[in-house]
């Protein structure tokens, strides 16, 4: 990298604090960030589960029934609850960050952050209701 300034003429005895292994435990914001990142794992795992479900449906009624039976096991229920919480956390934190990545201007004025986040939450709620309607209708 180009830096046109004169480097120190003798080596400075600089102190560099090593990044501690638990750096993300020292600061609430870092912890929440790492938690958000870790919830990705559950998002990923649940996606795999959903793909398996699709596969089972494709193979016919018997494999589908077997798959559904497997899901009723307590381990799977525990996993589903955990994954649900994780995905919820992931979604909420992401939607809160959306205003930073999406800048909308209406009539020259920037749409306030809160409104953009609220719009996303609203869309999420509508999507959930539609899904709930489809599922519960049957």
């Amino acid at each position: 990298m180009s830096n046109p300034s004169q480097a120190p003429t003798v080596d400075l005895k600089l102190y560099r604090r090593p990044m501690p292994f638990g750096w993300w435990l020292e600061n609430g914001a870092y912890f929440r960030f790492i938690a958000r990142e870790l919830t990705c794992i559950f998002v990923g795992l649940f996606t795999v589960l959903t793909l398996e479900l699709v596969q089972a449906v494709g193979r016919g009624p018997a494999p589908y029934a077997a798959f559904m039976a497997r899901l009723e096991g307590s381990a799977y229920i525990a996993f589903s609850l955990l994954a649900f919480a994780a995905v919820l956390y992931h979604a909420v934190t992401w939607f809160n960050l959306v205003p930073t990545t999406v800048v909308v201007r209406l009539g020259g004025e920037r749409v306030p952050d809160g409104l953009i986040a609220a719009a996303h939450f609203a869309a999420w709620a509508v999507a959930s209701l539609v899904v709930a309607f489809i599922v519960l209708r049957g």
Binding site: M1, S2, N3, P4, S5, A7, L12, L14
Partner: peptide, 10 residues
């Protein structure tokens, strides 16, 4: 020491 920043900036 912020010299690294000045390099990054340019």
């Amino acid at each position: 020491d912020i010299t690294s920043f000045l390099g990054k900036l340019s």
